[in-house]
Design a protein around this nucleic acid. Structure first.
Lengths: 222, 222
DNA sequence: GTATGTGAAGACTTTCACAGCG
DNA sequence: CGCTGTGAAAGTCTTCACATAC
């Protein structure tokens, strides 16, 4: 639901890897790191598939786009495959992220300590509510959005999170693009209107709920 | 990534609608309600497609699974199409939801006032941390998970949200199933192992970030 | 024996393009 | 004339099944 690339014909040997394949790699990585933390040295496409509820063929096919990471008869070395996936996804480093919106959700995100060891660090929190500007969240001070361009520039930040109400999200998104942000994770419940070279992903729990209810037996209040 | 239905051949006239179609309906609904709130009375598949960044043909094809909602030459009545989508998704009512986890994220979810007018109400918050049990979030008192079965039963709740750390998520999920929950929205960063008749959706911002970085120019810290 | 990597087959999804209706 | 609803075509994704390698 958010896929675009301009350069198609540039290099015929590197034909575009489907976005749907890319979207599964972080899930593979998350599970491999769990296996690694449990002391597993080796795994197989079958074991991984069972943990994820997908077919082993899919995992093998997905990985085959990037190289040959396994050994026939043996499977995959867990730590090695982790490193390879981290390299493919470019998360073998820490990416700075700016966060706009210091409400409850912004607080939750800014305080979450699960980002760093998966490749991300929130380097700035911004909000225009004067009662929030100047307050501290952990070791970060909330600043007005007028301070965004300088912060994005200084940290060479390419990723932003929008955690403001829907009515101000489009304006915030435009400020972010203006400041140089290339990818946005949007928690506001709307579809942003953005230039095609900006990647946007959305998180809206109600979308997930409304997907679920289609399959449930109706038995709700009212 | 979470699709299963047992009954296939039951009624040949109602052939299974693809899950990928269902997953787009809530997004259509969200946008239609925005148009409605802006006073639009009529829209077209083309206008909707432009707002959503998808093709008009896709929207028409998706809707055609459920009936003929538009008028040729005119388009769709916004309010009418909203009501139809709400009926299809079964969100023309309010579904009770229980929330497990009263950390920052749990607070953000329990305090969010955007659920009700989209069909959901958090009716209980549960946590086993004794420093949290008994505290109030808005007008809800945090209870221990031992109180889950009674609450799920009393409210006839089918939907739960997991907002606990990864290490306790699987155990919580099992308690939820035991209590009678049929669908789970999981914010913990792992894949749950669940029986096939339980629908699970996942929200993990790091998965979204790691998807983005594949397409970004590497220019991160380290 | 066991598990990968991979063409080919099969299944699914999107787009095309136009008849038909308001 | 404009826009829907829809078969048919095109395109994409997943699964199969097996040669190959350990």
């Amino acid at each position: 639901m958010a896929t675009q690339r301009a350069d198609h014909q540039q290099n015929p040997t590197v034909d575009e890897i489907p976005d749907i394949v890319i979207s599964r790699l972080p899930v593979y990585l998350r599970t491999l790191r769990l296996l690694d933390s449990q002391g597993a040295e080796v795994t197989s496409s079958q074991e991984l598939g069972e943990l994820l509820g997908i077919s082993s063929a899919q995992i093998r096919k997905d990985l085959s786009h990037f190289g040959e990471f396994g050994k026939q008869g043996t499977g995959y070395n867990v730590a090695f495959l982790c490193r390879q996936l981290e390299k493919i996804l470019k998360v073998d480093c820490v990416w700075p992220v700016v966060l706009v919106g210091a409400g409850y959700l912004g607080h939750a995100l800014a305080s979450y300590n699960g980002f760093l060891n998966r490749g991300f660090r929130i380097v700035g929190v911004f909000d225009n509510d004067p009662t929030k500007v100047g307050t501290q969240i952990g070791d970060i001070e909330v600043k007005p959005t007028s301070a965004l361009p300088e912060a994005v520039d200084r940290t060479r930040c390419q990723i932003a999170v929008i955690a403001v109400p829907a009515h101000s999200a489009q304006a915030v998104a435009e400020e972010l693009i203006e400041a140089g942000i290339r990818s946005i994770l949007c928690y506001a419940p709307l579809t942003l209107n953005m230039p095609p070279d900006v990647r946007v992903e959305y998180i809206d729990p109600v979308i997930s709920f409304q997907h679920m209810t289609y399959y449930l037996d109706k038995g709700c209040i009212d």
